[in-house]
């Protein structure tokens, strides 16, 4: 019986890997994938926001430039 101890231990490890660790990994990967998809949609939205915000910044810059030139 003692001679089979390492084999039983290996079987135990295989069981842990197959049914417990795998399910934990799969759940973590699913969460990571969903987070990635969410970040992609956020990234698309950011491009649009930057575009609007840039136009505002440029308008402010032009107003300041005109004021500075007008003062001279």
């Amino acid at each position: 019986m003692l001679a089979f101890l390492p084999l039983f231990a290996k079987l135990g490890c295989w069981f842990l890997d197959k049914y417990i660790k795998d399910s934990i990994n799969k759940a973590a990967l699913k969460q990571q994938w969903l987070a990635t998809i969410h970040r992609i949609s956020l990234g698309v939205a950011e491009s649009v926001n930057l575009n609007d915000s840039y136009s505002d910044a440029k308008a402010r810059l032009d107003a300041r430039f005109a004021a500075l030139k007008g003062e001279k």
């Binding site: 990234g43 491009s47 930057l50």
Partner: peptide, 12 residues
């Protein structure tokens, strides 16, 4: 105006 291009690569 500004029009940034983004390339996002996803893997599981």
């Amino acid at each position: 105006s500004i029009c940034i291009l983004k390339a996002q690569v996803a893997s599981k």
